[in-house]
Amino acid sequence: MNFSMFLQHFTNALGLGSMYGLIAIGYTMVYGILRLINFAHGDIFMLGAYFVFFATIQYKIPWALGLVIAVLGATACGLLVDRIAYRPLRDAPRISALISAIGVSFFIENASIVAFTGVPRNVIQPKLLMEPFALGTVRLIPLSLMVPVISFVLAAGLLWVIYRTKQGLAMRSISHDIETTRLMGVSVDKTIALTFAIGSALAAVAGIMWALRYPKVEPLMGMMPGFKAFIAAVFGGVGSVAGAMLGGLSLGFIEIMSVAFFPKLSGYRDAFAFVLLIVILLVKPTGLLGEKLEDKI
């Protein structure tokens, strides 16, 4: 493999990994606060992709506006999932919410098959994003640079919110002690809703970029990226936003590079992620940047 080929793979890995990272942030934030694996998260990712498809390709709304509509639409769906499927179970045993999450995920997937049909649809990419240009010896399209840049900017913005704003302080506090946080005047439901909104918006952005990069949408497209992003969240350390990004990137690099260097293994591409999950759970269950999660009192 020559250097420019390596750079090509590197860019691919960076793009894929940063999308995993964006999705993983939603898992990690919700888990950090509610100790709930939001199985429907991958489906919000899918909805974001579908919404942008319908808005821009079906209804010919300009891209800029279509993006906003898709992100807002998917965010609203994420909030709705919390409101209907999780909030009534806040005081119930955690396993109830988990089962509810699995149910919601199946519901969204099947409802999407009914509503959108199961047939994959092609996404027509805006020309602007596809015009190849040369960077040294590597030929790139703007899209493959945009994906990691947008992902990192969003992740950095989120870190700023979490560490520099009042709402971020409330989120960090709720994840450790809900009752005390309420005593400080924080509305737990609103803060949790904000968490779902942020996670869903990021998943929608990832879904849109995914639909542009692998130019099609289908109702089950959120499953595999969702599982992998979940693994990325565990790998990076559940509860840590930086960890989610790091985990996503690691996963992207493992996936792309193993196939690049050992093309014979390409059939096992998806298996690498799950092997990684098993290894991390055996060796370092708290993940790369995670703190030890004590059970809630």
Binding site: L169, A170, R172, S173, E179, T180, L183, M184
Partner: peptide
């Protein structure tokens, strides 16, 4: 509250800021 319930991972100043939420 009883038992102080300080948020262990927040700094002293962040705990105070939380009180002023």
């Amino acid at each position: 509250p009883e038992g102080r319930r300080i948020l262990p991972q927040l700094t002293v100043e962040e705990n105070l800021m939380l009180g002023a939420y």
